[in-house]
Design a protein around this nucleic acid. Sequence first.
RNA 1: GCGAGGAUAGCCAAGUGGUCAACGGCGCCCGACUCAAGAUCGGGUCCUUAGUGGUUCGCGGGUUCGACUCCCUCUCCUCGCACCA
Length: 929
Amino acid sequence: MSKFEMKEYEEKYCREWKHAFEADPKDGADKFYINVAYPYPSGAMHVGHGRTYIAPDVIARYRRMQGRHVLFPMAFHVTGSPVIGISKRIARGDEKTIKLYRDLYRVPQDVLNRFTEPTEIVKYFSDEYERVMSSCGLSIDWRRRFTTVYPQYSKFIEWQYKHLYEQNRVRKGAHPVKFCPQCDNPVGDHDLLEGEKAEIVKYTLVMFTWGEYKVPCATLRPETTYGVTNLWVNPNVTYKKVLLDGEKWILSPEAAHKLSLQEHEVKEEGEIKGSELIDQKMNHHMCGSVPVLPAEFVDPDMATGIVMSVPAHAPFDYIALRDLQKQGKYTDITPIALITVPGFGQFPAKDAVERSGIADQNDPGMETLTQEVYSAEFSSGKMFPQYGGKPVKIAREEYAELMREKYGSIIMYDFDNHNVMCRCGSRVFVKILKDQWFLQYSDEAWKKQIHEQLNRVELVPPEVRTEFERTIDWLKDWACSRRIGLGTRMPFDKNWLVEPLSDSTIYMAFYTIAHKLLQIEPEKLTPEVFDYVYRGEGSPDNLPIPKETAEDLRKEFLYWYPYDFRFSAKDLISNHLTFQLFHHKALFPENLQPKGMVVFGMGLLEGAKMSSSKGNVFLLEDAVRDLGADTVRMFLVGSAEPWQDFDWRKELVTATKKQIERFHTTVTEGNDASGSCDIDKWLISRLQERVKKTDEALQLFQTRQALQEAYFGIDSDLKWYRRRLPEGVTGSAVLKEVNSVWIRLLAPFIPFTCQNLWEFTGNSGNIAFAQWPTADESKVDEPVELAEELLIRTTEDIESIIKLIEIEKASSITLFVAPEWKYGLFRKIANAEDRNNVIGLIMKDEEMKKRGKEATDATKQITTLIHRLPPDLVGLIEKNDVSEAKVFESAVGFLEREYGLKVKIVKSDESSHPKARQALPFKPAILIE
RNA sequence: GCGAGGAUAGCCAAGUGGUCAACGGCGCCCGACUCAAGAUCGGGUCCUUAGUGGUUCGCGGGUUCGACUCCCUCUCCUCGCACCA
């Protein structure tokens, strides 16, 4: 088979299969609905995407051949903002982006010019996706293809959110987000140039008063306010006087700006130098009047730029105060302790500093030291009795609340240390987004339902279950509305778009009738229509669509739903895969909930992580063109199980191609064979086991294991088969039977080649619908397999001996077959309760007693042998009465031909040769001389 | 840092208490075919060795007659940690 032919039949079948997998409800058929997370078509498909869709296709094809009525649909997710960014960058002439699309994805220049319009990008790539997916032989019903911005889909989303809203699962809330003022939009971590690990920290502002002014000190530890001895202000900073929500405040300029983004009205009124604040007295209800001390370490860009000092419990404060006191200043200030911590003395901060030997506040160890005291006090600290005596853990929240209620404290958000930059180059701040909509995943009752539901979902591989459980527990409310991007407007608040992950939770239900919905004018798809179709609520009469249409939609939905399995990459467990469980539960009854999920691993390219942005990808289209779709398929599902990471290595893929070619050659050649041979029975017997194992593996989605059996297993059986054929014979008629089974067994993996061979071997029709082979137990012949196993093991022994001796000296092989009494021993030991202590048992036998040492030696050897043989085999040996002598006698011709030596078979008890005594059941003594 | 999963011979990888020196593939080596190369086919591939024995399955301990397999410590890797597909 030349490369040319492989390509040729692949293209031919691709055309023929265009409509082959369109699935309509069929009465009496056992449906199987499988689906995959749809792609976001913003770039070309690479081989990593390939596996995501090929693995489910293999399963779809397997089930179809089993007689299941399979639905495998596909659509495109185009909601969200990435393509908007891409088109902007292309419009702006961004080198990197243009290079990626022009050179790596090979978008023609005229098309690229149109990419300044975001929808053009997804339009172009979704067509490309369909083309490439088809060329891979994916058995998809393409009539159901849609994108998430089709008006009919929007109607579906509106219907869904109307329900969620009515169920009170979508609520308005305010949340702090990372926000870029220049883009005027929240930014996710992937939008950041810098500071990706930055976290939003929630400070409590402790409001000191200074005359008519309020002086906010930001703290993470409001419970320590009783221990404040002074404030710290940076004398070199010029602070602002502002009117914040109508009150006079003093704070750093940066802080003023930050708070203006956090739902506060900030009006600038004037300035005041830090130095002017030094030595002023500030008041707070909880600590009284305290002085302001100078501190250059105070960062105006950190929270409010004014800090309260608790030298008893904060190492930083302690050292700073100590340094000033060393200069003879502020010697009247003494730390005020208010927390006891096991392992520390009266002043934990002082202890920690002295223990660590840190000399000054610029020491890099200060950070760790602070953390140490902070953690110790948080986990095991207790407030002094006069401050309530509660554990810090609890007191902190209580004080924070008290201070917000009584002492004018408010919350301020800021990043922890990091400088955060947007991709646009502008600095990112924390902004409170008000009126944002949230899905109430934090709702305990809802969570409980999902936990219960999860127990009924089949998960592959089973190990991911704990991760799902964790995710459900960990989920908080999810902001489900966006200002910009493509998508559907919230039906109850048209100012917001439904967030991209939030509009992709129940679209598997849309697939079931997508092709029909797309024929209906969107405005007719009212919530009442969907209520009837998807929930069976109301009546099909008086809907905007004809009654028959409504009933037909309802029927088809119920025919396919619930889906049987959903496939997705493992990184979606913590969002999409779990979200969809929540939404299914909210909208559909118990009998329509998801039944199973299969989670994928990631893809590597030559050992390195695949990444489009780094250009480290291999395009699926190129792979199919260069190596053939079947090669790509077989490699992607055969080199690792779906949930394991796979590594696309050119060398291995090329080897896969050769394997397919070998398969093709073997089948083609075997087709002409006729007649029959002794070994036929063995081959057919083995084949049943291969079929069974392949099937078992596929049932568990183990595509790799299935291929091991279906391809390599049968291949290696055939190897032994050919070796055992009489001289000059290349095969027998039995190969036709093997071929027929083999072709069908591999059809889910390499459908093109199998279709070609299917026709070559005289069949017609699409092999995708041919009958899946099943094992025929009546063809399993244990004695024959056992005899062959004995021969295989013996040849291996002979070969290892030949390898070790000087072969030119040898002229004959003698096989000494174990005597009957050793077989008796074998059975006795195999059946013994305790195989390790059988000597006593054996020696009760008078005959064995007479044999003496010979018997004890044999017992030891046989015990070891039994431990070393596969348990199944031990059972078979014991059960079947195979005459070793006969097996070897009939194989003398074969053995003599194999080794070019004279072969003699001798019963060991009829020989006086010392070697003969070594003979064991299933392990003849071998003498080569 | 937290959560989940993982670490097996040159590489990939199977293997969950005795079937294990460890399936299979790749690479490499030898042989057959060929004028030759490639492809294909057969064999070999830890050290030793008449089919045996020894030392191996991230590091270090432990349980057991016996551990790649069970338990503990540590090291390293991958994924996720949210408003993003």
